[in-house]
């Protein structure tokens, strides 16, 4: 097993997340895509920590932090979505284009 395969899987996951982030119409699914991104990052961190820094495993520490921050962010994100839903009765991203030019 090489580092590259982990990195490639993580990159693939990241790209899938990006694709979901940009194309989803549902705001919740955008949040889910962001979770995918963060998990791709976590996978990277774990892989690097395992292959390059087996002694001090700083990557794993980072991963723990990222997980906690991601949880908080998802909570706030959902709160925002909920607030928007209360006002506008929809979670369709295409309806949220009020702040244009």
């Amino acid at each position: 097993m090489q580092l590259e395969y982990f990195l490639l899987v993580a990159a693939a996951l990241f790209c899938i997340g990006i694709f979901g982030l940009i194309t989803s119409r549902n705001a919740v699914r955008v949040l889910m895509s962001i979770e995918l991104l963060l998990n791709a990052v976590n996978l990277n961190l774990m892989a690097f920590s395992n292959y390059l820094d087996a002694q001090e495993i700083k990557g794993q520490v980072f991963t723990v932090f990222v997980l906690t921050v991601a949880a908080a962010e998802a909570a706030v994100g959902l709160a925002i979505v909920l607030t928007i839903y209360r006002n506008r009765d929809t979670v369709d991203m295409e309806q949220f284009n009020l702040l244009k030019w």
Partner: peptide, 17 residues
């Protein structure tokens, strides 16, 4: 060029990307 500010946060994300 002001139409580049589309109001779609996903579009902004794409631009950043």
């Amino acid at each position: 060029l002001k139409y580049s500010t589309s109001g779609q946060s996903q579009f902004y994300a794409l631009t950043i990307l």
